[in-house]
Design a protein around this nucleic acid. Structure first.
Lengths: 356, 356
DNA sequence: CTGAAAGCGCTTACAG
DNA sequence: CTGAAAGCGCTTACAG
């Protein structure tokens, strides 16, 4: 075993009968090498299968061309989709990606993770963990900037931090305004867990839309879910009890909306003639719910891309490779996707949903 | 800018008035350090916020404690769930994870990716890309073993390679046997893309079950999908036309099953009284489809964990840290999850699906 | 118990 | 156009 040996520049130099500097010049495409020398070296390189060590280069250049991403909840559509965007742009900009998943995003020991990332010389960090409860407390007193450029996803803007978020509040407003525009007047909400910043933002949007329309937005119209379809089911049952005049519901994600739809089918006492339903996320499945779900689409891939893009600019500025840029936080706008679930009498509809 | 400076061992040594060796001994918990020296050094370390460079250590030890994972399709449940398992076990074993996503898993230039991973000194690679068409051709002629330990997920076993897979064939059989046991006799299938090895395995299981029961498994019972709900819809429509006596259907994943369910609702000409439906994957949503979907659950987290576990053993053997182990390929067994969609007359059911 | 020397794989001045 | 020397941050023998 372990006949596995890394070919080094020294071996290449030796085999080609030149110094390591010359090999280095060839690798890095420097012009100051005699054409035949270059050719000879190149031949030896491909013959030996020489691969320059990025690790050694990191040590010299004090730059690893590696980014660290800290994420969580990859079993949900939002986080995994965001990660795809992050990875894509990371690669496009020539970086490698170190992945860290939190299993307890509210409580996990953040210190240890950052330390590991720093010991690996990452050039920057993407903090893709949702803001939950007090899980930003570790930011207090820390002077992160002095350690490494870092960009945050989906959290409340804070002075001194660069944050890229979806405008969840706007999303909640879009969903609710749509329902109002279609004649619904008694609109309940199943929120996400309310210690999530994003959940509160969506609820805020819901409330603003109702108030702007002069409609009630009372406590009995609100139920808290936990993003799961099961909590959507519990939510709708509770709402039916405490808000019987309800004629529409904004579920804060598509899974919970799905739970609502199934429950309506199962109960089939009062509806389903006239309960409007809007979700949030536009997961690929939602177009095939029964009825097809009206929902709010978030530009998640774009979110990941822009985060990496900005982080890269911060890094470059740090290395003085680019102009000094002012780094503002950014909000990306979600979009409403209208389908059958928010149109009156969808349950009777059949031509509406027919595809060819 | 760039007042950001990494604290080095030299600075710590200087500040503590000792040599770098002594600092090194303290960091690595060596016993041969005078108690007061140790204390003094430790204090300087935490005061300065010194973080030993994993990069420098990699160079010396010829071991990075980093694994590379090459994956794809993270927007689907299977791949992202598998990644969660991989990351979890990677962390548990003290490794870091370098993530590479392929955007064109059938054609992408694999050489470049492996080269990058090798230049980053990964200790091992997890190849979590499904086997599609000829996308294992690059294995030919390569002596990967000589480069780095590598483990493959979900592909046809090949001599000399270590592979960990879900037993998709068994899964297809489970699904079909279940339908047969519940009285269905004319069972169609919507397969995944047939250039996927996993799709073919699931179809094989379907066929075996039918043949074992003396039931027909003819070409007109088979339609090829592409994993999307939309292709499920197209699939069921085609099947209805070419296999009109069909009374049940095995959709090779839950998304396609969802497309089937919605289409049945939309058409509502012949059924839905009596079409049994079974999916594959057990995505969290499937319990809330209408009707709740019977499906086949794959132990994906476990798949990821076991892959990393085995890879780690291969690495240790390579470094002669452990005994020489014989590395067999492994099949993990999926399990059937029975819900309403495969029980007669589910569409009339309501008490069945009632939850409290 | 402690430290001067050499080296991991590479690159950056510097000298010729 | 080319190479000997020094160094990135750390550790491993080796000597005391």
């Amino acid at each position: 075993m372990a006949t596995r040996r890394r070919i080094t520049i020294t071996q290449v130099a030796h085999a080609a009968g030149v110094s390591t500097q010359t090999v280095s010049r060839v690798i890095n495409d420097r012009p100051d090498v005699a054409p035949d020398t270059r050719l000879r070296v190149q031949r030896v390189i491909s013959q030996l299968g020489y691969r320059p060590s990025a690790i050694a280069r990191t040590l010299i250049h004090q730059r690893s061309h590696t980014l660290g991403v800290v994420a969580t909840g990859l079993d949900y559509y939002g986080p995994s989709h965001t990660l795809v965007g992050i990875e894509k742009q990371t690669r496009a900009l020539g970086y490698s990606l170190l992945l860290d998943l939190l299993h307890h995003p509210e409580t996990e020991d953040v210190e240890r993770i950052i330390n590991r990332l720093l010991s690996l010389h990452v050039d920057g960090i993407i903090w893709a963990v949702p803001e939950i409860g007090n899980n930003r407390a570790w930011l207090q007193g820390k002077n992160l900037h002095l350690l490494v450029p870092i960009i945050f996803l989906s959290m409340e803007p804070r002075p001194g931090l660069v944050v890229v978020s979806i405008d969840n509040r706007r999303g909640g407003r879009l969903a609710t305004e749509h329902l109002i525009a279609h004649g619904y007047r008694h609109i309940g909400i199943i929120t996400g867990p309310l210690d999530w910043w994003e959940s509160r933002q969506r609820r805020l949007g819901w409330r603003e839309a109702l108030e702007a329309a002069g409609l009630p937005a009372a406590e009995n119209q609100v139920v808290e879910g936990n993003w799961s379809a099961a909590s959507g089911e519990q939510g709708i049952r509770r709402l039916l009890a405490q808000f019987p005049q309800m004629d529409a519901i904004f579920a804060s994600n598509d899974q919970m909306a799905l739970g609502v739809l199934q429950t309506i089918h199962n109960i089939r006492s009062r509806f389903p003639e006239d309960l409007g339903v809007v979700g949030f996320d536009n997961i690929p499945e939602s177009a095939y719910f029964w009825p097809a779900l009206t929902t709010v689409e978030q530009p998640l891939i774009k979110l990941g891309c822009i985060a990496v893009e900005k982080l890269s600019q911060m890094i470059d500025a740090d290395f003085q490779l680019g102009a000094e840029i002012h780094h503002d936080s950014v909000y990306l706008q979600p979009e409403l996707v209208v389908r059958d679930s928010s149109l009156f009498h969808w349950s009777k509809a059949s031509p509406i949903s027919m595809k060819t």
